[in-house]
Design a protein around this nucleic acid. Structure first.
Length: 490
RNA sequence: CGAGGUGUGGCGCAGUUGGUAGCGCACUAGUUUUGGGAACUAGAUGCCGCAGGUUCGAGCCCUGUCACCUCGACCA
């Protein structure tokens, strides 16, 4: 299949020493990550700790994520709404587990101007309570159900340690909140949205994920069940990349939301919520990035192909390059860089920014009626006839998208290990970064103990590929209930 | 919140026993360049994180404070 995208001939890039602009992944992965965030112009630090400025290039990635994901939500019948950013303290208090989970990290507004407020307001860390308060007012009959709502907004959680995209005090996200007449319907919604997230991660972000359910320990505050998509980053750490929660009727009872069913009986409705955040950008960076910088999947790349004219002073080069750019822009998101920077500078710059395809066009190419397309994911150069621009470039973009997914999947599989007993578990955790699959008895004590002795947390009980590696728990030796993915996590 | 580290032009850093604050990159102008971060020439850029203190004199010494980074505990 790969060969289909190659025309004329293919040149593999020589292993030249590229200019070192950022810390290498191997040297210091955390530093590599922040270097990429800054050098690719995704973010800048601001004067408030943990609050980042998302720069135009970074925000454009978010806008692409938003646009695609929003369409997937709407396909399933969800509507967008906007809730206030403030929650009165009394409202936050209504669901006990929920407030206990979030109280330690909420920011409070205590004054309006110089006047102290009667009741302090928390800046939303999540909006369950607001939605519940609203649902109580608008839902009276089974005819009012289901309510399929989603909100795009920012939330605030006063984190102690912060990192761009991965853990910031204010972050952008979407939160879906739905209300259903029956338990079955709400459960189906929870799974449906988990599948939407998995599809988005794999098809748009080219990022393979494990779909699963969280253990009680890792469950969202107030949920009956928390489902998750877990991805594996380049350094072998896991990243929770999206969650879908089933609330049962717990919140409905706490907020006294009721509706009258067909038999004229009062009932509590069942509820879900699900969310993904700008953390997805961090996930993309750490899944596909390399020592030359960011690598973006074409589906979400703000610039899919950048035209770099060579020897712009030569007669006709700029004109031809602009013509190529205009034709490309009709079939993908294209850009031309006709600035005075040297070609080498531009190559490095757009590699840093993760642009999937670079289109080089110089006097020699023009003479031959071709251009040179260079793939960001593997450096492969393809000579493309100018007559075939409109077909070959989209094909190459597709090849990059697929290539990124396959590479990430292969790496995840390579970095997934099975542990059959505690000794193996500790050994793998210490020496082999990645996912660890192991059996578990279902007890919280074993989970805590594995954290203690191996430094790993349970990531999820996978929904697919449940297999029995052994009959007994990896930790205590009692009969095992499930196979779990374990790992060190962000 | 615990342990450690770092704060000096926009960025990365140097700054000796306390004595006129420097280098590289980036920036501006011009010339030559242009298929892997070009070269030369000439410029501009500093509350040495902040507040006290010691001293004739502090980037350097003392006290406090704030921010950021790394590693833990907490989290999407």
């Amino acid at each position: 299949m790969k060969g289909r995208y190659v025309c004329l001939h293919t040149v593999t890039m020589a292993k030249e020493k590229l200019v070192k602009a950022i810390t290498s992944m191997e040297e210091d992965f955390a530093k590599w990550y922040t270097d990429v965030c800054i050098k690719a112009e995704l973010i800048d630090y601001s004067s408030v700790k943990g609050c980042m400025i998302i720069r135009p290039y970074g925000y454009a990635i978010w806008e692409n994520i938003q646009k695609s994901m929003d369409a997937l939500f709407k396909e399933k019948g969800h509507e967008n709404v906007y809730m206030p950013m403030f929650i009165p303290e009394s409202l936050l208090q209504k669901e006990k587990d929920h407030v206990e989970g979030f109280a330690p990290e909420v920011a409070w507004v205590t004054h309006g101007g110089e006047e102290p407020l009667e009741e302090r307001l928390c800046v939303r860390p999540t909006s369950e309570t607001l939605f519940c308060d609203h649902f109580k007012n608008i839902v009276h009959s089974y005819r009012d159900l289901p309510k399929l709502y989603n909100q795009w907004c920012s939330v605030v959680r006063w984190e102690k340690t912060t990192r761009p995209f991965l853990r910031s005090r204010e972050f952008l996200w979407q939160e879906g909140h739905t209300l259903h007449a029956t338990r079955e319907e709400a459960e189906a919604e929870t799974i449906q949205q988990l599948n939407v997230y998995a599809k988005f991660a794999e098809e748009y972000l080219a990022m393979p994920v494990i779909k699963g359910v969280k253990t009680a320990k890792e469950r969202f505050a107030g949920a009956e069940d928390t489902y998750t998509i877990e991805a594996l980053m380049h350094d072998g750490k896991a990243l929770q990349s999206g969650t879908s929660h089933f609330f049962g009727d717990g919140f409905a009872r706490a907020f006294d939301i009721t509706f009258t069913d067909k038999n004229n009986q009062p009932q509590y409705p069942f509820q879900t919520s699900w969310g993904t955040t700008t953390r997805l950008i961090g996930a993309v960076i750490m899944t596909h990035g390399d020592d030359s910088g960011l690598v973006l999947p074409p589906m979400i790349a703000p610039i899919q192909a950048v035209v770099v004219p060579i020897a712009t002073h030569k007669e006709g080069v700029l004109e031809k390059a602009n013509e190529v750019y205009a034709r490309l822009n009709a079939v993908c998101r294209a850009k031309i860089d006709d600035s005075e920077q040297s070609p080498g500078w531009k190559f490095a710059e757009y590699e840093m920014k993760g642009v999937p395809l670079r289109i080089e066009l110089g006097p020699k190419d023009i003479e031959n009626g071709v251009c040179v397309a260079v793939r960001r994911d593997n450096g492969e150069k393809t000579v493309v006839s100018l007559d075939e621009l409109e077909t070959k470039i989209p094909e190459l973009l597709k090849a990059v998208q697929d290539g990124l997914y396959n590479k990430a999947l292969a790496r995840r599989e390579e970095m997934t290990y099975d542990a059959h007993n505690l000794e193996e578990m500790v050994d793998i955790a210490e020496n082999k970064p990645g996912f660890i699959r192991a059996m578990w008895c279902g007890d919280r004590e074993c989970e805590d103990r594995l954290k203690e002795v191996a430094g790993v947390t349970s990531r999820c009980i996978p929904l697919e590929s449940q297999e029995t590696l052994r009959e007994t728990c990896v930790c205590c030796g009692k009969p095992a209930k499930n196979m779990l993915y374990w790992g060190k996590a962000y």
